[in-house]
């Protein structure tokens, strides 16, 4: 499931004029069919227990089958001209074509956090996350962002440590904090 989600579907061609068809929806439909089919397939590999008339298979069978069916229905709907009504908002400008590069940068920053948090520790990792995301989203006030990020991450570390009793990893700052 993860691999197919890593790449958001092909950039929607024309967001400003509502298209007659949204062929990118077929990607979602394909994903649904794959998820449903795998769920169904995996259920066949499960052992059935004793004294349990329903067993572990029934739910995945039903869910998998219906998910496949929904994928097929979505294909049908797409060709019949079903176009998603994307959600707007004050910070969202749907007239511009989607900017997937920014999204990819954010994904990169988050991936970096996932990979480093265990040994770098929250106080630094969190600050990098903040600065990196702000930069990806177009902020160019680097010094201010670094200060804000450090204050946020160090103070949240202390808040969790002192007030809530949750020990976030200190990482390479172990002993300093």
């Amino acid at each position: 499931m993860s691999t197919s989600l890593e790449t958001p579907d092909a950039p929607a061609s024309a967001e400003h004029t509502p298209p007659d068809r949204d062929l990118a929806q077929l990607g979602l439909a394909a994903l649904l069919v794959v998820i449903g089919a795998y769920t169904f397939y995996e259920a066949t590999t499960l052992r059935i227990g004793f004294g349990d008339p329903v067993g572990p298979r029934v739910f995945p069978y039903v869910i998998g089958a219906i998910t496949v069916l929904l994928g097929l229905l979505l294909v049908l709907a797409t060709f019949r001209g079903d176009v998603p009504q994307a959600e707007g908002g004050e910070d969202i400008d749907l007239r511009q074509p989607a900017d997937w590069v920014t999204v990819l940068k954010l994904v990169g920053v988050l991936l970096f956090t996932v990979l480093t948090i265990s040994f770098v520790g929250w106080a630094l990792s969190g600050a990098v996350l903040f600065v990196g995301s702000a930069w990806a989203l177009g902020s160019r006030t680097l010094v201010r962002d670094v200060i804000v990020g450090l204050v946020l991450s160090v103070s949240s570390w202390y808040f969790f440590h002192e007030v809530l009793g949750v020990i976030l990893p200190a990482g390479i700052l172990d002993g300093v904090l």
Partner: peptide
């Protein structure tokens, strides 16, 4: 930019603090 960076920051903190699992 700072607002949504902050949201990502707190989202990550929240999800991480639950189980402390990367």
């Amino acid at each position: 930019p700072q607002l949504y960076a902050g949201i990502l920051f707190f989202a990550t903190l929240g999800a991480y603090a639950t189980n402390l699992q990367a």
